[in-house]
Computed example of a mutant assay.
Amino acid sequence: MKVGLSPEITLLLMACSTNLSTEKKTQLTHFLSQHPLNWERLYALAGRHRLKPFLYQTFLQIPTIPESFLAALQQDCRISSTDNLLKLHQYHVVSAILTENNIDHMPLKGIFLAEHCYPDSGLRISGDIDVLVRKEDVFKTVHLLQTKEYHLNQQQRLHWQQGEQVILTDLFEVSLFKPFFNDSYFDIDLHWQILGFNRHYALFDLAYVRSEPTFSTEREVVLLVIHHGVNNVWQQIYYVNDLYFFLNSRGINWDRLMQELRLYGLEHVFLAGLYWCYQVWNIQLPEFIHELVLSPRIYSLAEAYSKNWEADNSSEFSTLILKQLSFFIKAQTKFNKQLKICSTFISSRVFRYSLFRVGKRLIYLPKELGFITILIRTIQSLFRFLPTHR
């Protein structure tokens, strides 16, 4: 394990286990005796990295854990486990509605992984319910969900007023919410395209996954790497766990997977995540993949990603956008890919719509206004970097 990691992050990585061996218990007990912990920070980081279920399951088998800390974890895990079950049930309700109306769809990320890849769905804390549909089914799906008490938020309603063509041109997903109990909601992110870094670099859709059924699993890995590795720079440890459990639960055609990843410049982003799958979970890999994962270049890239784990909060907005650019460029070995990343980054920031708030009112500016929109977004981005807005 990396020496430079804090005791809290190191412990969270060590706690990622589904079957704690006697040897691992001994290692953990020794580690706890040798490294004073900031228990408050450990609790906060376990929440940020969505690892409380793993930490609780592990700490139940370690005798030296403070009872108050264990009790807090137990309560959190009860809540998240119930929340998962409710979201999973709601997804199945939505899925049945879409199936009845002949709408092809597939779940993405949390709900899908919790149900089909993790050994216990309670280990994978889920956020929104993510569903991918075909572009031609977007409005039919939204109207169906609205009949089931789902609503668009203020920002989405503003876009809806611009017309269907504008929505399909400007957006790649739409968010809907359904009140559940008190201040609780079911949130659905309805996707019809997945951004690969940005709209001008690569776009993926349901047809991409469905077009070659023999390699649909490998293409699902591509979508996972896009979301977790490129768009979110592996900045939370549960992203690594997602990759491990998906790969471990599927038969992978490694040659085809690497070919697909290489096509989009994703090879090293994937291998950096796979490096941590190996370090944390000792994932079994083909020899040629194992050699790639342990190469100096991938080690260096994986270490750079792991520096994001120590932050109190996940990067968002302008900070995350800059990290996406920086890490994706670092992950390339060919100049033409680096050039494409830079050129599409610039074009995607210029030729896009903007929403900005004046008082309580949201204002929409179409992408045709070009540099006016980028000027507004630049000011907004700089504003977010001010200390009072971090």
Rank of each mutant, 00 (worst) to 15 (best):
S175W: 03
G251K: 09
E23G: 06
L294Y: 13
K109N: 04
L301F: 14
M14H: 04
L98D: 09
I376G: 01
N84A: 10
P63T: 02
L206R: 03
R256A: 01
P179D: 10
L13P: 07
N38L: 12
F345R: 07
Y185W: 07
G370I: 00
V93N: 12
R384T: 12
L339I: 14
V225W: 03
H30W: 06
Y208T: 02
S295C: 11
I226H: 08
G229H: 10
S21Q: 03
F69V: 05
Y239R: 10
S306P: 02
G370T: 04
D130G: 14
L5W: 06
T10H: 03
L32Q: 06
V221A: 08
F139H: 01
E115R: 13
A114K: 05
F288M: 14
W39M: 12
E212P: 05
D183R: 05
I289K: 10
R157P: 00
F356A: 02
L263N: 11
Q156H: 10
K337P: 01
D205P: 00
L339M: 14
F186S: 06
L375P: 00
Y208F: 08
A15Q: 04
L11K: 07
L223R: 05
L266S: 09
R219Q: 09
K52S: 13
W276M: 08
L195N: 10
L261V: 13
L294F: 12
S6W: 01
G47N: 11
N198A: 05
R157L: 10
F327N: 11
T26K: 04
P63D: 02
L382H: 09
E149M: 09
Y150Q: 06
V3P: 10
R390I: 03
H143Q: 07
R384C: 11
W254I: 04
T214Q: 11
K135A: 13
S216W: 03
V221Q: 05
A114T: 09
T169W: 12
E173L: 10
F327P: 14
V133H: 08
H228S: 09
T26P: 00
T82D: 15
R48S: 08
I376C: 01
S315E: 12
I379L: 08
Q235E: 14
L108E: 12
L51F: 06
Q57D: 12
Q193T: 15
R78P: 00
E212S: 10
Q338C: 15
Q193W: 13
R361S: 13
Y278L: 15
T10G: 06
V233H: 11
N282R: 14
S68A: 06
I252A: 03
I289F: 13
H35Y: 13
Q259D: 02
P366A: 07
I194N: 05
R361G: 07
S249P: 08
F177L: 13
K148Q: 14
I298D: 07
E310M: 00
R390Y: 04
T217P: 07
L365C: 07
D205V: 01
S249H: 14
V209G: 08
Q74K: 15
K340T: 14
W192K: 09
L86S: 15
E40P: 03
K340C: 10
I167D: 01
Q74F: 09
F204E: 05
Y91R: 09
D183F: 01
Q165I: 08
A207V: 08
E8N: 08
K330A: 15
T378D: 01
R50K: 11
E218H: 04
L195C: 12
Q156R: 07
F327D: 10
L325F: 13
E310F: 01
F54Y: 07
D189Y: 04
